[in-house]
């Protein structure tokens, strides 16, 4: 594997009495879309801010592009924070030009490239409008332009699909995939697990400031496959032993099991009940969402 674009080693950060991040380590490589996942308040944003040299870590080391971040290296990064991030009361075009020039672009080049992006994302006609007069989806697309206009090598996006309709979601996914194929490194933080499954090669899951899962998506799913079931049948399937989460989809129950419970335990419990009639019982590959819920709930129980 090539040199990592981002390497975080044993990062820790405390704010007053709160340990926001504790001993977080992971690496992200060129040409991959990396999922940075975790529940709200888990420490994802603090981790991103330390990665981007906005916050200094109390402990640990951050290496980006093989070294510490200097001014030139920062110009190779595109960062889109969650929601907002643009001047609401200013017009779209000068706002995006200003942010692009802060990334080292000449104004003329920035304007030329901006027009290409505005055309592509269907915002050209709105370039003289104030940002606050654009719809939420348009603002989101404008933020994506602000993140990508200077052709960064490292792209960090927080909830990139927020507020987008299915057509624009597809468009943004295509852009992300395009950037990945061009060899760019993309770190994506989102709660939309199906987007992570569709786009990300690898993920890290942070909970309560600590890394609780890290690796390739497929490998993680395999690791958790013994703990997911699909059950179909008639009757009441609630109150099964060791079930962390159960949701009904297309007439079948998708069940996530606690780590210490296996499928045989559930099968035996079902067989002993007379109020259910089983038509289908099989081991399933869990979705990332199941895994997310399983891990976060387990952490909560352990705390």
């Amino acid at each position: 594997m090539s040199e990592p674009t981002v390497s975080l080693q044993h990062l820790s950060k405390r704010f007053g009495d709160v340990q926001a991040v504790s001993d977080v380590s992971f690496e992200v490589y060129p040409g991959e879309i990396f999922g940075l996942l975790g529940p709200n308040g888990a420490g994802k944003t603090t981790t991103i801010r330390m990665m981007l040299d906005i916050f200094r870590p109390d402990r640990g080391e951050v290496r980006v592009f093989g070294g510490t971040l200097d001014e030139q290296a920062k110009e190779r990064i595109g960062y889109m924070p969650e929601e907002r991030g643009l001047y609401k009361d200013q017009k779209l075009e000068p706002t995006l030009i200003y942010l692009a020039t802060l990334k080292g672009m000449a104004e003329a080049t920035a304007r030329e490239r901006l027009y290409e992006w505005l055309h592509r994302l269907d915002l050209y006609e709105h370039r003289h409008k104030k940002v606050q007069d654009l719809s939420r989806g348009m603002q989101q697309k404008a933020q994506i332009i602000a993140t990508l206009i200077h052709e960064p090598d490292l792209i960090v996006v927080d909830e990139p699909f927020s507020g987008l309709d299915p057509v624009n979601t597809r468009l943004v996914k295509d852009i992300m995939e395009e950037q990945r194929q061009a060899g760019k490194t993309i770190i994506m933080s989102t709660h939309q697990m199906y987007q992570v499954e569709a786009l990300c090669n690898r993920i890290v899951l942070i909970n309560r400031g600590r890394v609780v899962l890290y690796g390739e998506v497929e490998e993680i799913k395999r690791r958790f496959s013994a703990h997911a079931l699909v059950i179909e049948g008639q009757g009441d399937f609630s109150n099964l032993p060791g079930v962390l989460d159960m949701r009904r989809q297309n007439g079948a129950y998708h069940v996530a099991l606690a780590p210490h419970v296996d499928a045989q335990t559930v099968l035996r419990a079902l067989a002993a009940r007379e109020d259910v009639f089983i038509e289908r019982f099989e081991l399933a590959e869990p979705s990332l969402e199941d895994i997310f819920v399983m891990v976060v709930q387990r952490e909560g129980d352990d705390a």
Partner: peptide, 16 residues
Amino acid sequence: TQEKENRTVEVLLLSL
């Protein structure tokens, strides 16, 4: 305060 409120400051702090 406006840059804080609309979170532009988070983008700016990467450049400044």
